[in-house]
Design a protein around this nucleic acid. Structure first.
Lengths: 176, 176
DNA sequence: TAGAATGTTTAGATATAACTAAACGAATTA
DNA sequence: TAATTCGTTTAGTTATATCTAAACATTCTA
């Protein structure tokens, strides 16, 4: 028997919810993106309420996060004070925007704290057993280099405006 | 005034805990990895208890997860029934191992569910408005292609045994 | 076999995140 | 100005994840 369209949308939405949770986001965020992504016209907040079953409050905050990550866009119609939202469908664009967003995050603060640790070690400002200090400096430095590499990797991806992910992976597989 | 070595270790451990949480792992996991990473000798479970302040139970389960991800290794000494743990210091190796581990995860199941949705759409098994079905098929397909690209990208990275991340990012930046 | 030293599992506590319901504020219209 | 329509914020609830404490299982030793 044929699946109905609403049923199919529901399955899709549940799938995206799981994916959202996997990446450490609220599952509601995935659901919101899903309904926007499957809609050919921008939706108002109340329409999203109706389609997801979430409350205005939750959607208001989560949609803001999505917008900050570049995954949805806010728009408005003339003579209509409702806000409308639509999904970004160019995922490559979104990725770049997410990576940029990441710059000021907790993550980078933490990484900076590693760098500070290393600076202290290199400046000889640490008191303690010399052999151990040597070992630890070497370890911390290796980690710092790894994070630096990750960082320049993401910068490189951000810079590659026109190249799609699929092309990048093709290139990498050739390098093998 | 010079920072003491224990103080420095504490700072480093807190940094890694934050990073761990950022990636959606328990912060205790970051702490456990940190103490192992800063130790030049493998540590027993009780030593980790002593150095992190966590309980045996928590460490027992978290260290298992770390081992599965290839971030720590379990070893044992002759005539000593304690287990010993040490950190993997080759992060590139760890990344590959983590990506492999990911294969059977919730994430990939969710992605497979997207593929199933698409298959139904393509098989014409869906009842509903034709224009809308057309639109939705196009959208779901675009998403599927994106995930496929991501997938082959990770496969490519996994395959690149000898190439470090820093080299990869160098290559990508040249491509620009 | 009894006892000790280990690692694991489990039941429950605590902390954290997600979400709801309702109050609020701002803008708009009557 | 009063009433309406929208989005946001907030206080509190619910759900989930993390961690503890203690029971448990296993292996070794005497």
């Amino acid at each position: 028997m044929p699946t109905s369209l609403p049923q199919l949308k529901k399955e899709f939405t549940e799938g995206l919810s799981q994916i959202s949770r996997f990446w450490g986001f609220p599952k509601g965020m995935g659901a919101i993106f899903a309904v926007l992504y499957l809609s050919s016209v921008p939706l108002s907040l109340d329409e999203i309420v109706q389609k997801t079953g979430l409350t205005k409050g939750a959607i208001s905050t989560e949609v803001r996060t999505l917008a900050r990550m570049g995954l949805v866009h806010r728009s408005s119609k003339l003579a209509d004070r409702k806000d409308y939202y639509e999904a970004e469908s160019d995922f490559y664009k979104s990725i770049r925007s997410i990576l940029k967003e990441r710059q000021n995050s907790e993550f980078d603060n933490a990484i900076r704290s590693i760098a500070k640790t290393l600076a202290k070690l290199n400046a000889g400002e640490i008191s303690g057993d010399n052999e151990e200090i040597k070992f630890i400096r070497q370890r911390v430095q290796a980690m710092q280099e790894f994070f630096d590499a990750l960082d320049s990797l993401t910068h490189a991806v951000v810079k590659l405006e026109s190249l799609g992910l699929s092309n990048i992976s093709k290139i990498l597989s050739v390098l093998k």
